[in-house]
């Protein structure tokens, strides 16, 4: 069983939604990321979304772009990210989702990537610039290894597209709560709940919501109707501002713990998926 499925069913039995923090691997260097991962797990992270740095992160807002640039400046490349996951796996069973762009994976070799990622303990891949229509080559390799592929849906997705993603996605579906790039926003779009309900008509997979979540209250509201909340840019902001190494991990943990409390306090129907 993929760790993602196991985690969602465990959370379901407790009536909780998953909190999924995003961090860019190697920001500013890989040792710090390992400490941050430990701290996030201790603070209640249910899964980890780990960003693979890329030179042209066109789906990301300024915050994650900067994180990606710092990581690249430190020399963190895909093989180092896989090594980090292998290292973290010695001590943790948290599901890990790689979030990245297609070219580094294509260049690494799709079959080789699927094999090495799975062997390292990666559970899923979200390739943000690879639309599901073009994903067959990649999925042939990932499915062979039991590596899940996660796809995005957005407010502009129509029913046809929701059906397509529902058919191809494994693990969960990632709903992007606003049109646009990653980044902390002040407000979430009002129709979010209705959109999640619309997606549920086509799938029994859990639905995660991301892009623009930054406060415990937002995380709590989302956990009332979605199965996971992904927090990226707001967390990267905390890490960026925290100054030197040790403080980055502890402040990331403290921030996440506040979000987790916001979610646990929220009312949640037990059988949402």
């Amino acid at each position: 069983m993929n760790r993602i499925d196991a985690k969602f069913s465990e959370l379901k039995s407790r009536g909780e939604a998953a909190l999924i923090p995003f961090v860019t691997a190697g920001d500013p260097e890989i040792g710090t990321t390992l400490k941050i991962l430990r701290s996030l797990e201790a603070a209640g992270a249910d899964m980890i979304e780990l960003g693979v740095p890329f030179s042209d992160p066109m789906a990301d807002g300024a915050t994650i772009q900067r994180a990606s640039e710092r990581a690249l400046a430190g020399g963190t490349m895909l093989p180092h990210v896989l090594a980090l996951v292998r290292r973290f796996r010695r001590e943790s069973e948290l599901p890990i989702i790689l979030f990245g762009y297609y070219n580094p994976i294509l260049h690494y070799g799709l079959a080789r990537f699927a094999r090495d990622a799975r062997a390292a303990g990666v559970d899923a891949l979200l390739c943000v610039d690879l639309p599901p229509e073009e994903s067959a080559e990649l999925r042939r390799e990932t499915e062979k290894r039991g590596l899940y592929t996660i796809f995005l849906l957005a407010p502009t997705s129509d029913d046809e597209r929701i059906k397509l993603v529902a058919r191809l996605a494994r693990g969960f579906i990632y709903y992007v709560s606003v049109t646009g790039v990653t980044g902390a926003r002040r407000a979430l779009e009002g129709e979010l709940q209705a959109q999640v309900a619309r997606i549920r008509r086509y799938t029994r997979l859990p639905i995660g919501v991301g892009f623009g979540i930054s406060t415990p209250m937002q995380a709590g509201r989302i956990s009332a109707f979605a199965d996971a909340a992904v927090v990226g840019s707001a967390l990267i902001d905390v890490i960026e501002r925290a100054g030197r190494d040790g403080r980055k991990a502890s402040q990331a943990g403290a921030f996440l713990a506040r979000l987790k409390r916001g979610m646990r306090g929220a009312k949640r129907p037990v059988s949402s998926f």
């Binding site: 030179s55 042209d56 070219n103 580094p104 294509l106 260049h107 690494y108 610039d129 690879l130």
Partner: peptide, 22 residues
Amino acid sequence: GEIGVLHGSKSYLLQDKNGQVR
């Protein structure tokens, strides 16, 4: 360059050995 994907098309691309765009 070598074959790669950037900006939504698959074509020759100037990239380093890790698939980062040069």
